[in-house]
Design a protein around this nucleic acid. Structure first.
Ligand SMILES: Nc1ncnc2c1ncn2[C@@H]1O[C@H](COP(=O)(O)OP(=O)(O)OP(=O)(O)O)[C@@H](O)[C@H]1O
Length: 728
DNA sequence: CGGCACAACCTTTTT
DNA sequence: GGTTGTGCCG
């Protein structure tokens, strides 16, 4: 029973009640993920449940990895039998095992979103839908949305009511047909196809229902309709379903997350036990109160209590920089300062931003300063052209029916096979109902196109297709890229850029070698699955001592001692595309995102913004984010630049690095506290105005200018030394 | 068919 | 600011 010892009574309750449906509804940092992990440990250790009988679903691969690691510490190698992964990896696993029961080719591969878009474009051009009249992205997003709701082609077609949706339905139908022809599945299919499998092959469903006696789902507020259906099917027999979530942290509505899954859980499982966790173990009182004051503005929420025994800590600090470079240099100053004064390491700091594009400026500063850093997500490596080409080669070897990937590489390097040839062969193939790859073979055999048109390409692919059992995957990739002439294509360029690309290709090969380690057999399909699902070459590892950069979305579920949220500007966060007068929903989601970001901070939270920012090459002035205004001023300290700089001074003529700090107040952080006695948020007494609250501060020391709100007399700007403090 | 130059448009967030 | 798509010419 020592497992329960580390938990508070509510948590222990949630862990110990193993049978029947349970909904754990709780705020940030209350130990939801901890409860889930302990619940698994409890089932395995105390109740003697076999790992074979447990399915746990997390939202990200990162979360799954962390949980697995913790369980391995408790369980040892036995943890391997446990199914623990994202919805998508779980669906994939089911389909790799049993997909053949509904006619899914065992060699199928998974398309990423670029492949999806390319396929949509192909479908549109075949249907003579111009991409000017309808954006392929918009159509794809509707197809994805349909899959989020588990709507098949027929379901969708039946529901269309306007012209646009009619077109979408037509594309969806062709798109789905092509996926099948190419023996590929997209992300949505990884959820929808298992549902179809379970509907059409009852014995398969029963097998999984029997197996998964205990099912656990983390981040339940961000599950979509299709995922809900899948989980309902799997848990229908044992009903030992434990879901964990926080409606205030629902930030994936745009991806089909349906908050009703959590709000109506009680309706679906009338005998549900609802457990609330109300103690936050992560953040200081100030951080928690500031975050709550923001999310409380949302109208659509259940509302909940959240308290902490942690110390007050420092106030949340907001500062608006001149521009994004200044923002970055402020941040660097603070990191170095706090690191020295509080003996923190680089890994204790995290930078969160709304959009990936914002990471670039910071990355430049990191490179220049030599400070160790790590950008999570952003999908950079696998988005490079050379890597996508190389992966397309691997896909075609693993599955020659993948015509889309074939089209990508058949003329890379140039083999004299352009649009005309591809059109000719592809319509020839369509007539025979065969894949493009086979059509090429046949067309060359029949002399429809010159016998040697492919310059040995087909033979190379077939050779490696035949060798895939005999070679390790990294050897195969290496030889394939050499013999196909792909590496040589870059070598011949003899530019520095091409060198870098070759370097990246080597990195891909060594990533494959790493992949082979730690699993007894690693097939090409395994690796391609991994690429499709993870697509982040070095996943977040906290043993490295470096500053972490990531989007607010990726930050969900993590925690850091010091957090910087940057780009706190109207239009950037909340993002302009979510500010609709007619729809508060998207704005509320942004606000929840703000809450998620703020509640990642354990000890100190900084909010930075820029007065001027360059977006798409032109400079823009956007006011401070409304979320700043929404924070209860009692928990916020605003550092404003002092405006003593003479008017008309041209900032641009002064080098950037010299500007930094010139007109900034010197604020010393000692154990996260500002030594200056006139802290923002505290009460003071003025000889003539009476009691007031300090709202903002410019400058430091006894000459600092303070903005103070007096209940009687309104807002005043005063010099610090003329104020007497009310109780410490 | 291949390469280059210019335009347009953009990404908000991710499995 | 950068990428992706186009149109033209050799
Ligand atoms: N009973 C407890 N005693 C001490 N620390 C705890 C306890 N429960 C949770 N914690 C700590 O609180 C922190 C937050 O826990 P956890 O990540 O599980 O919360 P969460 O509810 O999943 O958070 P969020 O929803 O914000 O991601 C972790 O550092 C965890 O170790």
């Amino acid at each position: 029973m020592d497992i329960l010892k580390h938990l508070n009574p509510q948590q222990a309750d949630a862990v110990g009640k193993t049978d029947g449906p349970i909904l754990i509804l709780a705020g940030a940092g209350s130990g939801k993920t901890k409860v889930l992990t302990y619940r698994m440990a409890y089932l395995l250790k105390e109740k003697g449940i076999s790992p074979f009988n447990i399915l746990a679903v997390t939202f990200t691969n990162k979360a799954a990895g962390e949980m697995k690691e913790r369980l391995e510490k408790i369980l040892g190698p036995k943890a391997k039998d446990l199914w623990l992964g994202t919805f998508h990896s779980t669906g994939l696993r089911i389909l790799r095992k049993d997909g053949q029961y509904i006619g899914i080719d065992p060699n199928f591969i998974v398309y990423d979103d670029d492949d999806q878009l390319a396929l949509v474009k192909l479908c549109m051009s075949e249907l003579n839908i111009s991409d000017k009249s309808f954006s392929p992205r918009a159509i794809l997003s509707h197809i994805n949305q349909a899959k989020n709701e588990a709507l098949s082609v027929n379901d969708y077609a039946a529901s269309v009511d306007d012209f646009f949706r009619q077109r979408v339905a037509a594309v969806y139908k062709l798109y789905q047909g092509k996926l099948k022809q190419n023996k590929t599945l997209d992300f949505g299919d990884l959820i929808c196809e298992p549902i179809r499998l379970f509907q059409q092959a009852q014995p398969v469903l029963e097998k999984y229902q029997k197996r998964f006696r205990y099912i656990l789902v983390d981040e339940y507020q961000d599950t979509n309709r299709a995922q809900y259906i899948l989980i309902s099917m799997l848990s229908a027999v044992h009903k030992n379903l434990c879901v964990v979530g926080d409606e205030d942290q629902s930030i994936y509505g745009w991806r089909g997350a349906d908050i009703r899954n959590i709000l109506e859980f009680e309706k679906d499982y009338p005998d549900v036990e609802i457990i609330r966790l109300e103690q936050n173990y992560r953040s200081t009182k100030n951080i928690l109160a500031a975050a709550n004051s923001v999310v409380e503005r949302n109208i659509k929420r259940i509302g909940k209590t959240l308290w902490t025994e942690n110390p007050d800590g420092a106030l949340v600090t907001y500062q608006m920089a001149r521009d994004e470079h200044h923002e970055a240099s402020l941040l660097f100053e603070k990191v170095e300062d706090l690191r020295r004064k509080n003996s923190l390491s680089y890994k204790d700091f995290a930078i969160f931003y709304r959009t990936n594009a914002q990471s670039r400026i910071f990355e430049e500063h990191f490179i220049r300063s030599g400070m160790p850093y790590h950008i999570v997500g952003g999908l950079k490596f696998y988005e490079r052209k050379e890597i996508k080409d190389a992966v397309a080669y691997l896909k075609v070897v693993a599955n020659p029916s993948d015509s889309l990937s074939l089209m990508r590489i058949i003329n890379t390097p140039p083999r004299g096979i352009g649009k005309a040839t591809i059109d000719k062969v592809s319509s020839f193939g369509a007539g025979q109902d065969i894949a493009l790859f086979d059509a090429f073979k046949l067309a060359m055999g029949k002399g429809l196109i010159p016998r040697n048109k492919d310059q040995g390409f087909i033979a190379v692919i077939e050779k490696f297709n035949g060798l895939s059992d005999k070679l390790s995957i990294h050897e195969l990739a290496k030889m394939l890229l050499e013999e196909s002439g792909y590496i040589k294509m870059w070598e011949d360029e003899k530019t520095e850029e091409a060198e870098a690309r070759i370097e990246n290709l080597h990195e891909l090969i060594s990533a494959m070698r790493d992949f082979e380690k730690g699993r007894e057999k690693a097939t090409l399909a395994d690796f391609l699955d991994h690429v499709a699902l993870i697509s982040d070459i070095d996943t977040f590892e906290d043993e490295h001592n470096r500053v972490t950069l990531m989007t607010l979305h990726s930050a969900k579920g993590l925690e850091f001692p010091v957090v910087f949220m940057v780009g706190m500007e109207e239009g950037l966060f909340p993002h302009s595309r979510s500010i609709n007068a007619d729809d508060e929903n998207e704005l509320e989601e942004e606000r929840r995102l703000c809450y998620v970001g703020m509640t990642r901070a354990m000890r100190k939270l900084f909010l930075f913004g820029a007065r001027e920012r360059t977006i798409y090459g032109e400079s823009r002035f956007q006011g401070q984010s409304r979320f700043i205004d929404e924070i209860d001023p009692n928990y916020l300290e605003i550092i404003s630049p002092n405006h003593s700089t003479p008017l008309g001074t041209d900032f641009k003529s002064v080098p950037k690095w010299e500007q930094g700090g010139l007109n900034e107040p010197r604020i010393v952080y000692d154990d996260f506290h500002d030594n200056n006695p006139w802290k923002i948020g505290i009460k003071i007494k003025h000889p003539s105005f009476g009691i007031g609250i300090i709202k903002a501060k410019e400058g430091a020391g006894e000459d600092a200018k303070l903005t103070i709100i007096f209940p009687g007399s309104g807002q005043k700007k005063l010099i610090a030394k003329y104020i007497s403090l009310v109780e410490a």
